[in-house]
């Protein structure tokens, strides 16, 4: 078996990336465009609960909300729910008859610090439970030590273990240090067969940011030009406000184009974002600023 070699990839200009990302926050999105953006954001959302204290009841409630985010007005359902492997069965049963997919974090989430056979077995069992999508983490330790071939092999093996399920590869950009490292990690994951690349676990304080996601967008765009394959992207962690959501959508449109403005190729991983989006939609409808007291927490 041939050892993987990282292809030549361009370096990232930190100053330019940050100023370009900052420019996306200055777009004025109003009225009809805002409503469309908010509804699209809901359709692209991976509604997430990843707590040690998650119970079956909580996951059931979240699934109900995923299917019908708001009562009393037409509202699209979210793209997927994202849970721990043991709760996949619960979510699957709760979502019967809906289009909402079940994503699960596998491979010793969030650290990835476990033995490869165990991690692969975790993926297989999770898929057997009914998960449609697997969110795996890369071994950041190995990546930072420069063992790129090992990362490639692990992702490729995970992809194989997934079978029909989609594979999202979490880079945990907050632990990679530089934009160049993010770009490298994106390239390795895409080469190894990832369907999606995802920014963060949400368990590290520095989660998804616009600049880091922009670097990943550019990696995806260049990969598309070279191979013709469209890879999806999922920023996750720290996206709590509707305003942030449409800033990401603006960035998708202006970097990757309309092709990527679909839940098949872009997702937003979030737990508290949904309520803020619903509050904004309600505000557009009624003209009044809303209170979180009127929106269910789980």
């Amino acid at each position: 078996m041939q050892t993987y070699r990282l292809p030549k990839i361009p370096t990232v200009d930190q100053v330019q990336v940050e100023s370009r990302a900052a420019a996306f926050t200055t777009r004025s999105i109003k009225k009809g465009a805002k409503k469309a953006a908010l509804e699209l954001a809901i359709r692209m959302m991976d509604l997430t609960t990843l707590e040690g204290m998650d119970t079956e009841g909580k996951v059931q409630m979240m699934c109900n909300k995923a299917m019908q985010p708001m009562i009393g007005r037409p509202c699209p359902s979210v793209a997927a729910v994202c849970v721990y492997p043991t709760l996949v069965g619960v979510a699957k049963r709760a979502l019967v008859g809906s289009d909402v997919k079940v994503a699960a974090v596998a491979t010793a989430f969030p650290s990835g610090q476990s033995f490869l056979p165990i991690r692969l077995e975790e993926i297989r069992q999770t898929v057997a439970e009914g998960a449609d999508e697997i969110d795996m983490v890369i071994s950041r330790g190995a990546f930072l030590a420069g063992e790129y071939a090992r990362i490639y092999d692990e992702v490729a093996a995970s992809k194989q273990a997934c079978g029909p399920a989609h594979l999202k590869v979490i880079l945990e950009t907050g632990e990679l240090g530089t934009y160049d490292q993010v770009r490298k990690a994106s390239q390795i994951a895409m080469d190894a067969g990832a369907d999606f690349i995802k920014t963060s676990t949400g368990k590290v304080s520095e989660a998804a940011t616009l600049p880091v996601t922009l670097v990943m967008f550019e990696a995806v765009r260049d990969f598309f030009f070279q191979t013709g394959k469209r890879i999806g992207i999922k920023p996750a962690g720290g996206i709590r406000k509707a305003k942030q959501a449409w800033q990401y959508l603006v960035m998708v449109k202006e970097t990757l184009g309309d092709d990527w403005l679909t839940p098949d190729l872009f997702r937003l991983g979030a737990s508290s974002l949904l309520n803020d989006v619903l509050m904004q939609l309600q505000r557009l409808e009624t003209g009044n600023y809303q209170s979180s007291l009127y929106f269910s927490e789980d």
């Binding site: 003209g287 009044n288 600023y289 809303q290 209170s291 007291l293 009127y294």
Partner: peptide, 8 residues
């Protein structure tokens, strides 16, 4: 109007 209508 914005204060009086504010739900919060």
């Amino acid at each position: 109007p914005h204060a009086a209508g504010h739900m919060d």
